[in-house]
């Protein structure tokens, strides 16, 4: 949070953040495909920004593992193997389990209410097969926030930092591959189990349901990735 009397450089970081967010969304949304080279000049022109904020944004994306910058060759959207994905999910499982274990001592009502709301919203999507793809981006956004909130329940800021980094890789790969409709139904059911455990304040059920969800989500993601382009995106 910014203090009213603190002095912070405004212009550059803000533009970089905006660029970062736009590019990130393009990658997560699948508009920029894994393996695709980013045309820096074109992006500069399209966004109407100079090289410096774009560079800052790309560096930040590289830290998150979303792009790979190869000097003299170019900047590419990262390609993931099923192995990368499996690792991502293992990290997620370990972190989420630890976060939830400590979370139940916190009993943060506001957070619980927000999570309940997020899960209810996710459960309301995909009622129609014809339009479900349109809802996928929104659903995935909710999903991401819900998982981050569960980490936040632990009150451990470092864990959240590590998590956001690990989560993104799995996230983009899953997203880029596009879920099938039946994947979304399974995800919704798994979420309902988590929501029920949250609602009941049942710590054991929460740990089991969250773990089950991530394990199954990981399997689905690896399976989808393996089906695409012979194992690599």
């Amino acid at each position: 949070m910014l203090h009213a009397n603190s002095l912070t450089p405004i212009q550059l970081p803000n533009v970089a953040t905006v660029v970062y967010e736009q590019l990130r969304r393009q990658i997560l949304g699948g508009a920029l495909r894994p393996g695709q080279q980013l045309n820096i000049r074109q992006i500069e022109a399209q966004l109407g920004v100079s090289r410096t904020p774009l560079k800052l944004a790309l560096e930040r994306l590289q830290v998150e593992g979303l792009v790979s910058i190869h000097p003299r060759k170019g900047t590419f959207v990262t390609i993931f193997s099923p192995h990368d994905l499996r690792e991502c999910f293992e990290v997620r499982i370990a972190l989420e389990a630890q976060a939830l274990r400590s979370a139940f001592d916190v009993q943060n009502r506001a957070l619980l209410a927000e999570l309940t709301d997020l899960f209810a919203r996710m459960d309301s999507y995909f009622r129609n097969e014809a339009t479900w793809l349109d809802e996928l981006v929104e659903f995935m956004d909710c999903d991401r926030v819900a998982h981050v909130r569960m980490i936040e329940m632990s009150g451990n800021a470092r864990m959240k930092e590590i998590y956001e980094h690990a989560n993104v890789q799995g996230y983009i790969a899953v997203f880029g591959m596009r879920f099938s409709y039946s994947d979304t139904l399974q995800t919704q059911a798994e979420h309902r189990a988590i929501a029920a455990a949250l609602h009941a304040h049942d710590r054991d059920a929460l740990l089991v349901s969250a773990r089950t969800h991530l394990e199954r989500a990981g399997l689905r993601a690896v399976q989808r990735l393996s089906q695409h382009n012979g194992g690599e995106l």
Binding site: F126, R127, N128, E129, W132, Y181, S182, L185, Q188
Partner: peptide
């Protein structure tokens, strides 16, 4: 599956 989703679920 929730009410109303049966048709799409089956077809998936």
């Amino acid at each position: 599956v929730p009410a109303g989703q049966g048709g799409a679920a089956v077809a998936s």
